[in-house]
């Protein structure tokens, strides 16, 4: 193993940890502009985190060790996920240990722990949030899997770095199924990250909460870690999207050296800026759906992914 790849591996993780709150801040800023509000500064999430780390933890009397360890597990799994996703380079030694299916599993682990922690205190809102989160989760997972299936059919791999390499090797391969998968993926991304059509990240209305309801009992450093983990999750999802659908700029196995790294950094920055603005646009344009319409929304994304698969089987296979 070359030292440069190890360096890259850790570099990627650190970049993810550092940038994720910035990305969330950027989306919040774009949203504010689009909704004619005065925008919070870009570094608002960092200030928030710092404030939270400074505070004393107010831990519920009934909390068990599970509740206290969960923030660390959430943060750890999300950092680990960032290590697997090729956001800057595909030459990641760690990515071999877990392919995209394992990545979905990792996200599921985080979700299960958060739900369990929410049930731990035994409050009404916590359990409600856990139930809803699990409901969204079990509907979103098949859709995500079908999207991956689609990518597998195109490039014959479930490992994200290999997918990116495959994509870069055949840049002209523009299959219609990609479009379907991309739309489906954006829908899943919004649902999984508690964004607007399903959940409102800025709501203060407990009864409509999903993600926030689970965090109600967390405070101080625990809350900071959980929030940071959700920023990381959004960042990770965005990077999965880049890897699957717009992998240009990511340094491939063959590309070595400083130039490729600089290009990949620039590409990631541009993509994040554009994606953040696009997400903010989608969120500003859409209204929150009723919780019982959520299955319909997720069924739609699942169907899109499956349609992509079918279209590929019928149209794409013969030409490829």
């Amino acid at each position: 193993m070359k030292s440069i790849t190890v360096f890259r591996q850790f570099g990627e993780m650190l970049v993810a940890i550092a940038i994720a709150p910035l990305f969330a801040g950027w989306i919040a800023q774009c949203r504010a502009w689009m909704q004619n509000r005065s925008a919070p500064p870009l570094i608002q999430p960092y200030r928030m985190l710092r404030k939270l780390f400074d505070k004393d933890v107010a831990l519920a009397e009934t909390a068990s060790p599970l509740f206290r360890i969960t923030p660390y597990i959430l943060f750890g799994t999300m950092v680990l996920a960032a290590a697997i996703i090729p956001s800057l380079a595909t030459d990641l030694p760690f990515a071999r240990a877990a392919d995209a299916i394992a990545l979905i599993g990792l996200f599921a682990t985080a979700r299960v722990f958060l739900s369990l922690a929410a049930m731990d205190i035994g409050t009404a809102f916590g359990t409600m949030g856990a139930r809803r989160e699990m409901m969204i989760g079990f509907l979103a997972e098949p859709a995500l899997l079908m999207i991956l299936f689609n990518a597998f059919l195109l490039f014959g791999s479930t490992a994200l770095p290999s997918l990116v390499d495959g994509y870069r090797a055949h840049p002209s391969l523009m299959d219609p199924s990609i479009i379907f998968a991309a739309v489906a993926f954006v829908m899943v991304l919004l649902a999984e990250n508690a964004r607007l059509p399903i959940d409102n990240p800025t709501t203060h209305l407990e009864l409509t909460m999903i993600h926030e309801a689970m965090l109600l009992e967390y405070s101080a450093r625990h809350l900071a870690l959980v929030e940071w983990a959700s920023n990381l999750k959004l960042f990770n999802y965005a990077c999965i999207g880049f890897a699957l659908f717009i992998p240009w700029g990511i340094a491939t196995h063959s590309a070595d050296g400083v130039v490729a790294m600089l290009i990949s950094d620039a590409a990631l920055a541009i993509k994040l800026i554009v994606a953040g603005a696009a997400l903010a646009l989608i969120e500003s344009l859409s209204a929150k759906v009723r919780i019982f319409r959520a299955p319909e929304y997720l069924a739609m994304s699942f169907l899109l992914a499956v349609l992509g698969l079918l279209v590929h089987l019928l149209l794409g296979a013969k030409q490829a």
Partner: peptide
């Protein structure tokens, strides 16, 4: 031609859905 046609056909299907 063929990829674009495929894309259009897929869109047609999408609209039906």
């Amino acid at each position: 031609t063929v990829p674009i046609l495929n894309l259009l056909a897929a869109c047609l299907l999408l609209i039906s859905f």
